[in-house]
């Protein structure tokens, strides 16, 4: 998938004098705080959100990273 914003930025990097930038892609990061019964439920909800709302699978890939667990698991 061509990423025109990434390509434009890559050529600007060369103009800045930084050679050797082989690839550069620009995407988005979404930080989300979610309340859920347990981690499995949270993962399922995040999966749904990512597939159906945050990303369009036709043109975007996504990955999920859990940064922190706050409070106790209720299970």
């Amino acid at each position: 998938m061509l990423d025109p914003a990434g390509e434009a930025t890559r050529s600007a990097a060369a103009r800045l004098g930084v050679e050797g930038v082989r690839s550069l892609r620009i995407g988005k990061a979404i930080e989300i705080e979610l309340e859920a019964y347990d981690e499995i439920t949270a993962q399922a909800q995040l999966q749904l959100l990512s597939d159906r709302l945050f990303a369009n699978p036709v043109i975007e890939n996504w990955s999920l990273e859990l940064l922190e667990m706050v409070g106790e698991q209720l299970q």
Binding site: L2, P4, A5, A8, V58
Partner: peptide, 17 residues
């Protein structure tokens, strides 16, 4: 219509931005 899935595919940033 593409986001709804009534038509396939997606519309993305113009090639020359």
């Amino acid at each position: 219509l593409t986001e709804m899935g009534l038509l396939p595919g997606a519309l993305t940033r113009n090639a020359r931005l």
